[in-house]
Design a protein around this nucleic acid. Structure first.
Lengths: 253, 253
DNA sequence: AAATCGCAAATCATACATTTTTATGGAACG
DNA sequence: CGTTCCATAAAAATGTATGATTTGCGATTT
């Protein structure tokens, strides 16, 4: 056994392994998914969908049994999720699904408006044909989904709805900002799905308006329209959160 | 009473506890630190300080031997760091210290200016005596440090310099935004420390100007001053990155 | 009734087995 | 003779199982 591997000084010697130089994270090769990654993705979905309820303890063994894997991949997945704030980690005490609250929801929407306003502003500022076409395509896919249909329809709606909003900010020129916005989208989606507030039919027209304003290139109007869009959902969810937060603490006095 | 764990509302009550690394989690007691947490914190510091060089492979066994722990805590720490983008994770292939590049550095500074501009704007908008006093205290501590002194002085400078910039945005009303800004601060500090560009004597006066402008409450001037501050470091670091990046790719003819 | 002691359950850490990747060497081919 | 391809072996990461510490809760005692 080589005991003291010089961890510090070893330069990237092999020149033929330089193929991973390009882009920031293009190496999303889906063919080699590890168990920890699978658990991470599935548990993330289950948290967003509210299948595991806020406040619930995520016992290692229980999660391992739930997904049919060992404890070690579960620990790695939970540790990743804790850095994304999708689970609360308490040393020596375990992992928990984060609580929801009205204040957290408002802060989330507020921050989302700030960041996506910046991202949309920059995206429009850097606009080109390719970006505008991706938005058109994203809206086209969204328009073929009915948010009021069956479960499969709603699943498609969620996917394409998210893709549309990602497309809006995809031209901002900062992978950092896009990552932050997507994290906030995750958490917003958790609130939406937990609240079981489904979009209504006017949602498609609402997004069409957003698209048109964005394509016109008027930054101020586009940002205002997008923020209004989020403010509208803010109001709808607030009602449900009051109900849910109340049901969490029944107070049988 | 619903124990709404105030994930967001923690006021800057005790500023003297901020000398600990950005208290992202209000750790109840530091003695409960688990090995994974210790490795996470130490390795994070070593990455920021450039003790492990960009592109370096972080072999599990080597890291475990380095910090005198088992492999499992190391894996958990690396998984946490991967979600913070402080290490690159490639399934089945291991973990690596992220590469540095001129483009990444510019994107980082750009994003940082966007987010901290928003955060500073909101902080000033919500300004109160308590917040202004924390800034004064933070600057006072900073002013007693010499960035040109010995190693201990520089360490103090780094801590208080970071604390000062955190204090500026601490009143923005969004823990989300603060967390994002701190993540960007981490990465910016990595570039600064790797580039070995130490602040000069005028740095203190520069920060005094920032403080004064912020305390005056003029949002536009404060934001402009802060952005200029970051643009200045941008320029200084760019030179060094060219040197470092050039040394990494010695086009071997 | 409050505090303390002790047992059960879960997390944490170590050691071991399995699978994948990567490096090396040789043979076939141009 | 140099290059490419393939097979094999070493090395490393992933996954499983087991033992040690810690936490939480309940019964007991003062």
């Amino acid at each position: 056994m080589s005991e003291a591997k010089s961890l510090v000084a070893e330069p990237p010697a092999a020149p033929d392994t330089m193929k991973r130089r390009a882009g920031r994270r293009p190496a999303t090769s889906p063919d080699k998914a590890t168990s920890a990654t699978l658990v991470h993705d599935k548990l993330r979905q289950d948290i967003l969908k509210g299948i595991v309820v806020p406040g619930q303890k995520l016992a290692i063994d229980a999660v391992a049994a739930m997904y049919g894997v060992g404890t070690n991949p579960v620990r790695e997945a939970l540790n990743r999720l804790s850095s994304e704030r999708l689970v609360d980690r308490q040393d020596q005490r375990g992992f928990f699904v984060p609580e929801i609250s009205l204040d957290s929801w408002r802060e989330l929407v507020k921050t989302r408006c700030w960041l996506e306003s910046t991202a949309l502003t920059e995206s429009i500022h850097n606009r080109d044909d390719r970006w505008e076409e991706t938005i058109v395509v994203a809206f086209h896919r969204l328009s073929k989904c009915s948010p009021t249909g069956d479960a499969q329809d709603r699943a498609g709606w969620e996917i394409h709805h998210r893709a549309f909003h990602v497309a809006l900010i995809a031209n901002c020129g900062s992978q950092w900002l896009m990552d932050f916005c997507e994290i906030l989208m995750d958490h917003a989606q958790r609130y939406i799905l937990i609240s079981a507030v489904s979009a209504n039919r006017s949602a498609i027209e609402e997004h069409r308006v957003i698209m048109e304003v964005v394509l016109q290139g008027d930054i101020a109007r586009a940002v205002a329209t997008l923020v209004e869009h989020y403010q509208r959902t803010l109001y709808h969810i607030e009602e449900q959160i009051r109900v849910l937060a109340g049901s969490v603490t029944p107070h049988a006095t």
